[in-house]
Design a binder for these strands. Sequence first.
DNA 1: TAGATTGTTAATCGATTAACAATC
DNA 2: TAGATTGTTAATCGATTAACAATC
Lengths: 209, 209
Amino acid sequence: MPGKMQRIPDVVIRRLPVYLRYLHQLQEYEVETVSSQQMGVDLNLNPAQIRKDLSIFGDFGIKGMGYKVAELAEQISEILGLNKEIPIVLVGVGNLGAALCRYNRYQESATKIIGIFDGHPSKIGQQHGSLEVRPMEELTEFVQQHKVKLAILATPPAAAQSVCDALVAAGIKAILNFAPLLLQAPPHVRVSNADVTSELQALAYYLHG
Amino acid sequence: MPGKMQRIPDVVIRRLPVYLRYLHQLQEYEVETVSSQQMGVDLNLNPAQIRKDLSIFGDFGIKGMGYKVAELAEQISEILGLNKEIPIVLVGVGNLGAALCRYNRYQESATKIIGIFDGHPSKIGQQHGSLEVRPMEELTEFVQQHKVKLAILATPPAAAQSVCDALVAAGIKAILNFAPLLLQAPPHVRVSNADVTSELQALAYYLHG
DNA sequence: TAGATTGTTAATCGATTAACAATC
DNA sequence: TAGATTGTTAATCGATTAACAATC
């Protein structure tokens, strides 16, 4: 669909990592091709939806045959921009932050935490894996020097908005926010909320009803 | 709207905790009433949507005046079932699990982790806050004895599906899944995915484009 | 009362799904 | 070729938003 401009819904973008992980799994079992029908069964999705999602980005399938697993995985990686390493800064090295930090090392994903920051003096210099906690004062320079565009925010809620502002000012384009509050950020900065308490509260609804 | 039966979209349920937190914030500032207009501005939502969401559950507002903050917070808590403590079991006490465990104590929310479990022998008996890691063998009995309906799954992906099966068999009704894989669960069990890698990969898309 | 704001209906918008011609 | 499965159009479904009568 060359040249055709079109807004891609966020809900589609959020399914791409799901497809990608599934394809990687198939690769482990040395499956070479897969149909949208089969994907639909395994992922609990409508096959037409899967085909539609994929066809937004190109004609990746082969009629009568399905999709080549390795090729499709490659294409989705490319769409998401995962072919090169994506550097991340993490701000707030508390319980959760430290866990994410260690978690980071075992994952083989393009996204990689390369700098960790905390506002609390006692934390500065602490070692987490191969990373040392840096003071907030170094944030802007670090982000700009390493061309970091993605940040994880895991501070206490009281500090979150000012950290967010600092990240935005430093040129960050997207934030994964674990702090339990609604961040105010300009429209060109994408914020994704991953607050555990809210998730649990929403699930609580389904326990009665 | 007494007696009127209607399916409530998940997207509405997921907004309720957002409203609730906002109302709690207003309470801290001793704001007594709030209009959907004001809420819309502060939460970046359409006021009509907020009114519609709330009116599904009852007539909580006062025409010409707005909503009483304390009363609305109470109502939403009730809708979500947060008026009584909601016991949670956490399975998988790795980095993330342990962090969630400690995190748990500082939050003042109705949802509370009361039992933590791990399949790895070396972890059994470890203390995390006031909780001691229990062996998987005790899971079913614990869940049933304490009438636990909500679980957090934070095991490595290889163990996740069998843990999920065990949780379902024990009578769990909802699972917050941090493991990076798609869990297969029966329709009466609600699964919410909170996989960090997928979140980051989706955000990666917005860094170029 | 006059002004403000709700709850709700109707209009709009957007996403999902069914259906099928194209074609491997 | 016959069977299978894509990419895409059209139909459906559902969620968001605008508009406004009801009313505090």
